[in-house]
């Protein structure tokens, strides 16, 4: 490949558990290949820490393909690091230069308590989905799939909203710690589809109420979330959700 191997300085957040006070720890990593992923660089560092008898750095990851939403590192002040449209696991070391100092922190949000080091707990998202992010249809009582015709454009829009991986980067980057982008993606997907119509109002009211209860902040439309979302979930979804919410609230009052 084009570049040579590089040496980097990492400043990594260490925190024993949710109640402990954390601090930054500095590590040198040498001979980093530009073809490595960011997480593979952490694997190499952890391997060394283990050999030295030290505690390796805990971080979340699973698919390493940018789809499970598990990986979650706040790199140099940006969730998932410097490259747009990419999760931490798909970030490659060719995006860094020899001699760089890289600061790595967990997602920071009141609603996402730290589990250990760089791993956080995002169960709040599951509870928001449980509050309405579904179509109430029991197994077995559906008609032939092609009886529901959906214009391609609408299906595509719904798909684009459904592409959210639930990683929480939007929350981590937001100065208010708002979960609006995540919630609006699900509300939009189902509002755009005929299957979602019946429960449209209850859905948005239920999900927003749960979002507030979980301690996420309010949205002041800074737009930071859209910039950092690895799946390109658009701010339009927030606008759509606001309309849905206003309409549903008005109807409830009637």
């Amino acid at each position: 490949m084009s570049h040579e191997n590089m040496n980097l300085t990492l400043k990594v957040w260490r925190q024993k558990n949710k109640d402990a006070k954390g601090n930054f720890e500095t590590h040198q990593v040498k001979e980093v290949s530009p073809d490595m992923s960011f997480l593979e660089m952490f694997d190499v560092l952890n391997e060394r820490l283990i050999t030295e008898g030290k505690d390796p750095i805990a971080f979340d990851h699973d698919c390493r393909e940018g789809i499970c939403g598990m990986c979650s590192m706040f790199i140099d002040g940006r969730p998932h690091g410097p490259v747009k449209g990419v999760t931490t696991c798909q970030l490659h070391m060719r995006s860094f230069k020899d001699g760089d100092t890289v600061v790595v922190e967990p997602w920071r949000s009141a609603a996402f308590p730290v589990v250990k080091d760089l791993a956080v707990n995002r169960s709040a998202f599951d509870r928001i989905i449980a509050a309405g992010g579904f179509v109430s249809v029991n197994t077995g009582n559906s008609k032939d799939a092609n009886n529901i015709l959906i214009p391609k454009d609408e299906a595509d829009d719904a798909f684009n909203a459904a592409a959210c991986i639930g990683c929480g980067a939007c929350v981590a980057t937001c100065k208010n710690g708002s979960a609006m982008l995540f919630v609006s993606a699900k509300v939009s997907q189902l509002a755009l589809l005929p299957q979602g119509q019946v429960e449209r109002e209850n859905r948005v009211l239920g999900m927003v109420a749960q979002m507030d209860e979980e301690g996420f902040g309010t949205c002041t439309v800074t737009g930071a979330c859209e910039v950092e979302c690895p799946k390109g979930i658009s701010l339009e979804n927030i606008a759509r959700m606001n309309r849905e919410y206003v309409a549903a609230s008005a109807k409830k009052k009637d």
């Binding site: 008609k143 529901i148 214009p151």
Partner: peptide, 17 residues
């Protein structure tokens, strides 16, 4: 059928199928 009823956004043709 089940997945479509749940709102799974499968790829579609221009005719909506």
């Amino acid at each position: 059928d089940q997945c479509v009823a749940q709102g799974v956004p499968f790829a579609r043709e221009y005719g909506g199928t």
